[in-house]
Design a protein around this nucleic acid. Sequence first.
DNA 1: GCAATTGTTGAACAAATGCTCAACTATTAC
DNA 2: GTAATAGTTGAGCATTTGTTCAACAATTGC
Lengths: 117, 117
Amino acid sequence: MNPIPVCENECVHDSVVCEVRERLLDEGEYLDLADLFKLFGDPTRLMILHALEQKELCVCDLAALLNLTKSAVSHQLKGLRLSNLVKFRREGQNVYYSLADGHVRAIIDIGLEHLHE
Amino acid sequence: MNPIPVCENECVHDSVVCEVRERLLDEGEYLDLADLFKLFGDPTRLMILHALEQKELCVCDLAALLNLTKSAVSHQLKGLRLSNLVKFRREGQNVYYSLADGHVRAIIDIGLEHLHE
DNA sequence: GCAATTGTTGAACAAATGCTCAACTATTAC
DNA sequence: GTAATAGTTGAGCATTTGTTCAACAATTGC
């Protein structure tokens, strides 16, 4: 019998598996990371993020730009806000959104690089 | 009446919206990009990718490592293969998977950086 | 040839996701 | 105060997604 692995398989390279297991992150980290990347996994949110890369925009602008209802945009912005991808400021009746930091641009750029290579 | 935007809103800053619209990508690009990032949006796939960052592994190893069936792992690997995130080679009965290029590591690293900042 | 093992695939089903709709809050102008 | 506009929120519903299960293909050893 071997270390931790409980599995249906015979072939398993135990020493390698154990070695890799030690370098893996906590399960919670992968959950958090997945929740973050899920936000990039929807065309609408990508367009919102990419638009905000160009300029600060209010909800109405985004709705007009993407041909969506303000509600739909607002729902998506909420997710982006909760993960600190975007920040916002109120000015009168308008709420202006912009990117919170450079991570969004960096991630999208690498994604595009991967697609176009 | 103004350029392209057809919308329910009055507030829209037309010149800004038009300017941003010109810099947006084709809709298909956002779809492709979203499909790519969807692959990072699942904890299981993230663990697979992160494990492959450490070492080349066969399906059995991954199954043992993540406590999943070979079927589940194989299904996920298929998606990763189709998007050129992983490559593989057959050696006897085993199929060994590894990362196709540096983009996976780059994306995961930025994601972790964002979470931990 | 046959049995054993690794790996892949398609169908099925439960869980998660994104949009719509309606109701609501917030600010401005009167 | 009221009316109008911007924005948010929760429920509902159709679509998508991830795993399981069973059947199948591929390689090895006899």
